[in-house]
Amino acid sequence: MIPTRKKTALATSADPRRSVTLTVNGESVTREVSVRMLLSDFLRHELGLTGTHVGCEHGVCGACTVHVDGHSARSCLSLVVALDGAEVRTIESVASEDGTLHPLQEAFHACHALQCGYCTPGMIMAILDHLESDRPLDLSDEGVRELLSGNLCRCTGYANIIEAVRLAAARMSLTVEA
């Protein structure tokens, strides 16, 4: 951001706040928040939904991925104030209320697709966007790697995560690209 790099005095020393209402995991939530509050912090600090993890806070690692209005998004690159009226879905809503895991979570378990687990919620939310899409999945090595390319995992080497995606797609009987 070269044009703004020269230090400009902050025009405001105040911390403006706004009331926002959004739907989180099916429940309507209204809070008064600072306009600079990131969705990731809102979920964790205001709502206690700490399943959404915060890694890099600049959109690279994917740990904070949630769904906004039905599609995957980086919660660290979303201002809550801009999401008034939006529908947000987090990892907490993926398993059933009785604790039954989603087929994708089952597949992660079966394939040992996590070690420390820090990246896992973001992985699940990013992959779900594809599994729930009506577009055919590309389950070739390259296709799955591309699908995972926006999420970093420092433990697994990805091989088991790739297997988990394929297993979940098979168990969910999803349409696959020829």
């Binding site: 703004t4 025009a11 405001t12 959109g59 660290c76 690159l77």
Partner: peptide, 16 residues
């Protein structure tokens, strides 16, 4: 905001 917010998180951009 996918370019501007990272820059703001880093405080490379500090628009009033």
């Amino acid at each position: 905001g996918q370019s501007l917010l990272p820059a703001m998180n880093f405080r490379l951009a500090t628009p009033p």
